[in-house]
């Protein structure tokens, strides 16, 4: 579904990604692990075209996308859920969802408001509430729902558990498993290993802009030195 090869990216003059390669197969949940500043978010932004990669290839659904602007990539069915949520605080819940809406995709049942409210019941009661008046956890639900309105085949989730109370993190894990149940491919960046273990099939570890490990969650669990060296546990 998603193939990344030898990705290089810069912020200004700072060389952030040094040849990142990774894959996510259809229906898979893949975690990209690493600590703050390791380059996790940058990988997702580069895939999405928000930070155009300087070098390397990104193929989505068999199509090369590394030179496309973000909106074209989004229209191909790649959804992006940013860190820090970035919901439109002046817009109501319904309007936030409207901004994310795209035409239905062939072969996929389209997401509707009602279907999303079934997945995130908290949101149903606050359709007309401005996004700025929601709690952090509610905003996190809304930002995912907003991206789903674009009927993506694959979703990039940037730090979905960041800054959430541990108890909300558990709800978030349930929601991601539900997305997997719908057949979506998910690539998520995380610092939280417990959370990743609860949702992901496979994991990559990134450090200083390079992939240092790629394998199943079981392999990662079996190697405490990896966790000690690269992760915040």
């Amino acid at each position: 579904m998603l193939q990344v090869r030898n990705l290089h990216a810069f912020y200004g003059r700072a060389h952030i990604l040094h040849g990142v390669s990774l894959d996510a197969g259809a229906g898979e949940v893949v975690a990209l692990l690493g600590r703050n500043g390791a380059g996790k978010s940058t990988v997702l932004k580069a895939i999405m075209g928000l930070l155009p990669p300087a070098e390397g290839e990104v193929a989505f659904d068999g199509r090369r996308v590394e030179r496309l602007p973000p909106y074209r990539i989004a229209r191909l069915g790649l959804g992006y859920v940013p860190e820090e949520r970035r919901i439109f605080t002046d817009l109501t819940v319904s309007e936030n969802l409207e901004v994310g809406r795209q035409a239905a995709r062939a072969g996929l049942p389209p997401w509707t408001e009602d279907k999303l409210f079934a997945l995130f019941p908290n949101l149903a009661a606050m359709r007309e509430r401005p996004g700025g008046r929601m709690s952090g956890g509610e905003q996190q639900m809304l930002t995912i729902a907003r991206t789903l309105m674009g009927n993506p085949r694959c979703v990039l989730l940037d730090e979905p558990s960041e800054g959430l109370a541990p108890i909300i993190v558990e709800q978030m894990a349930r929601s991601i498993r539900a997305l997997k149940g719908e057949g979506l491919t998910v690539l998520l960046s995380e610092q939280n290993l417990h959370f990743s273990q609860a949702v992901a099939d496979r994991a990559y570890i990134i450090e200083k802009g390079q992939i240092r490990f790629g394998g199943s969650m079981a392999e990662l669990a079996a190697d405490p030195s990896l966790r000690e060296q690269y992760l915040s546990v």
Partner: peptide
């Protein structure tokens, strides 16, 4: 109104 707040995000949601 969304773009007034965060135009990059609007683009990432598929809006030209």
């Amino acid at each position: 109104r969304a773009a007034t707040q965060d135009r990059e995000m609007v683009g990432a949601l598929g809006v030209d």
